[in-house]
Write a protein that binds this DNA or RNA. Structure first.
Lengths: 239, 239
DNA sequence: CGCGGACTTGATGTCCCTCAAGCCGCGTGG
DNA sequence: CCACGCGGCTTGAGGGACATCAAGTCCGCG
């Protein structure tokens, strides 16, 4: 259950055997959701946090006119709502973008960790700060990158985040999203996403088809996107 | 020094006298920066966090072509870089948008708090989660709101955040930013911000001039912006 | 009095949206 | 087995929101 989360943690700091045990002991119920299920609605008071084991999740808000904006995509090993531990309820919804398996971690267990394992507690804090860092990069993307660069940037980000948990190589990874869902992440329409994908393909940078991203030229893709992975804090050090 | 930060905390949870003492004891050096100073550059290893006492700060990233995107504005009572405690260095820069006074809080003091005051530690964690929530709302703004609504939304957000620390009424507050800086927050050009401000003025919703925001019709402004303050977590409860 | 920075406004351009149509693959049911 | 419906993808034509370029104006300050 915690394998991918531990991979993600160990990419940033050392985890002792005892800390690993404390984490494994915190596991609650395992739950499956089918694609399209909004299983955490905004405003609902939560008593556990949700660790994604398999599949893709998205955090999103809807506008009055029906438009939707996804503020973060989650990959296996991510906590979807670790922030609900101190927030108590969320300001946004969380949905399963694909079929998903999650483990629920009761907030009492998290509270015990904060009291008994200060270093591990700091790492949980770190994980929510990492989400915030990803949000900031999306702000920059939406504010200042063209549709083409923004899309390229998202593919770069997911490549790194998935590689950390062993789900991507330098050249490809599975991404079972529709162009509509991609558009909801990118602040675009699906029509325009389609045109952007065509251009990325024609430029021989990336291909996105049948739920799979194939990276043809990673250095060129990163150059186009102005992608700098520093915001993912992948250096290992004492946090 | 900590008055506004305590106001901000007490809007969300109760703080005991002992916790207040622990906070006050954590104060380090008081520093002043003049407008325009980038005093925390991305990547620099930090040994203290910075609490803003007076003035406005901004977190930003620059693009290759010289464009800039601000990912969050900070008002008095905000920690500018509480997240540096677990991140160790920042992925973005922090600059004084106006002349500022800050208190530095050494990371050792924060570490002591996490070990001796678990509830207070959770509240510090909460504060970084609140920043993340603000980031998400900016993602939504940049992704799905028109320039007009986005600008209106920013004025609504700042009204609430400044009111919490006693620096705004329902109808006005000081905001000593240029239209260029506003544009850097909103993902627009200063030329377009100027036109948007004119429209907001002509519609009798808000005026922004000589470093001051005057709100003419708050309900209408909020309606236009689709502003829902839920993301600022202003309900008082045990966190 | 002259300079620079912020603000303002107009003319033109472009990126992305909207609307519309057609295609393809797939599942369902007659 | 084919008809059909449906959701996702694709492409074209036209429009609109915001950018770019280019003048100016205003104002504080040396």
């Amino acid at each position: 259950m915690f394998e991918k989360f531990l991979m993600k943690l160990r990419a940033r700091d050392d985890i002792s055997a005892e800390e690993e045990r404390a984490l494994r002991d915190s596991a609650g119920e395992v739950v499956r959701y089918s694609a399209g299920t909004t299983f955490i609605p905004a405003g609902k008071v939560l008593r556990h946090s949700t660790l994604l084991v398999d599949g893709f999740l998205g955090r999103y808000k809807d506008m009055r006119d029906g438009q939707r904006q996804v503020s973060e995509l989650h990959v296996p090993g991510d906590f979807a709502d670790l922030h609900s531990f101190s927030l108590k309820y969320l300001d946004h919804n969380i949905m399963a973008m694909t079929a998903c398996t999650v483990v629920q971690v009761p907030h009492e267990k998290l509270e015990a960790i904060t009291e008994q394992h200060p270093h591990l507690a700091r790492l949980l804090w770190f994980m929510t700060n990492l989400d915030a860092s990803i949000h900031r990069e999306w702000v920059v993307s939406l504010g200042r990158r063209s549709a083409l660069k923004r899309t390229a940037h998202l593919f770069c980000e997911l490549q790194v985040r998935l590689a950390v948990v062993g789900l991507a190589s330098e050249s490809e990874y599975a991404l079972p999203l529709t162009q509509i869902e991609l558009a909801e992440c990118l602040g675009l329409t699906s029509v325009h996403v389609n045109r952007v994908l065509r251009e990325l393909r024609e430029r021989a940078l990336v291909e996105f088809r049948s739920s799979r991203v194939t990276i043809l030229d990673l250095p060129a893709l990163r150059r186009l996107a102005e992608f700098d992975p520093a915001y993912l804090y992948l250096d290992k050090r004492s946090r």
